[in-house]
């Protein structure tokens, strides 16, 4: 496959990257790990005039902690996220879900920020970030701004980022003590999720005190299963979880493809939500 011709820039700093994007207007695409953009280019589904490679900006990589918040640089690779002890301790859901992304080669090249900015609803990490109530930090010509995950994913492959903004960091409130599980249903190992469910469960005295459910590939953006989250409060037994899971697909509009119809996706969302919550809550 031969991509269409494009100009190429490789800025050395975030400031330079933002300036380059601002100069280019709407016709630029940011190249992070390249695991989504390159296939789009090669299939001639994307025709950017300029590709801005942010792979050599050291400040975009790395993970740090700051008073109950985990801060992950946008260009941190999946591989680095998975093996980082702070991520495992404070946001185990992210580590567990990232470990299911594609295959080792992709996990070494692909990045957390790239995956979120691409905003593919079939990607695993958008729903996880949504469930974690993360905040995404964008930098543009006017400086930085914080975008809550709930506002970041606008439509299919569309985010709240402006064309001259770069996603630089992801802030995740730590969820120590929460149970978690990412239940991914895919047909072959490297394939995208047909449906995925990211569950975070906080229990109190044997009852579910709070639950957050992120849904992968159940619509044009990642979604929260709000009705199920509400119904889960107070649940103590598998039967109650099952009943709560029956409304997991409420309000969703999943797509159709050779692997699944919308009706089947809705069914899967219920089954997988039940399983994810039971596992996350240690109730299975």
């Amino acid at each position: 496959m031969i991509p269409p011709a494009f100009e190429y820039a490789r800025p050395a700093s975030v400031e330079e990257a933002v300036r380059t994007l601002a100069d280019a207007g709407e016709d630029a695409k940011v190249l992070a790990g390249g695991q989504s953009l390159l296939p789009l280019l090669r299939l001639r589904l994307a025709f950017p005039e300029l590709v801005v490679d942010i792979g050599r900006i050291p400040e975009l990589r790395g993970i740090r902690e700051d008073e109950g918040t985990l801060i992950i640089g946008a260009m941190t690779s999946h591989h680095d996220v998975i093996r980082d002890p702070r991520v495992r301790r404070h946001a185990g859901l992210l580590a567990a879900a990232t470990a299911t992304v594609a295959d080792p080669a992709v996990r070494h090249r692909g990045t957390l920020g790239g995956s979120l900015a691409h905003a593919d609803p079939a990607g695993d990490l958008p729903a996880v970030i949504l469930a974690l109530d993360a905040t995404l930090i964008a930098e543009g010509p006017a400086g930085r701004r914080a975008i809550p995950a709930r506002e970041f994913f606008v439509d299919y492959l569309q985010t709240a980022l402006h064309p001259d903004e770069l996603l630089v960091e992801v802030e995740i409130p730590t969820v120590d003590g929460w149970g978690f599980h990412y239940e991914k249903f895919h047909r072959v190992a490297q394939a995208w999720a047909v449906v995925g469910v990211a569950a975070l469960v906080r229990r109190d005295n044997g009852h579910i005190a709070e639950a957050r459910i992120g849904l992968t590939n159940m619509g044009s953006t990642p979604l929260r299963a709000a009705a199920t989250e509400e119904a889960l409060v107070g649940a103590a037994a598998p039967g109650a979880v099952q009943r709560a899971a029956e409304v997991a697909a409420d309000g969703t509009h999943p797509s159709s493809d050779p692997s699944a119809s919308p009706a089947y996706r809705a069914h899967l969302a219920q089954v997988l939500t039940k399983r994810a919550v039971l596992t996350a809550g240690g109730m299975g």
């Binding site: 190992a189 995208w192 493809d257 050779p258």
Partner: peptide
């Protein structure tokens, strides 16, 4: 052809 790439035409690997 709808299953026009390996994303939609699923060839299993050893992992499957």
């Amino acid at each position: 052809l709808v299953s026009g790439t390996m994303a939609d035409y699923l060839v299993p690997s050893a992992a499957d």
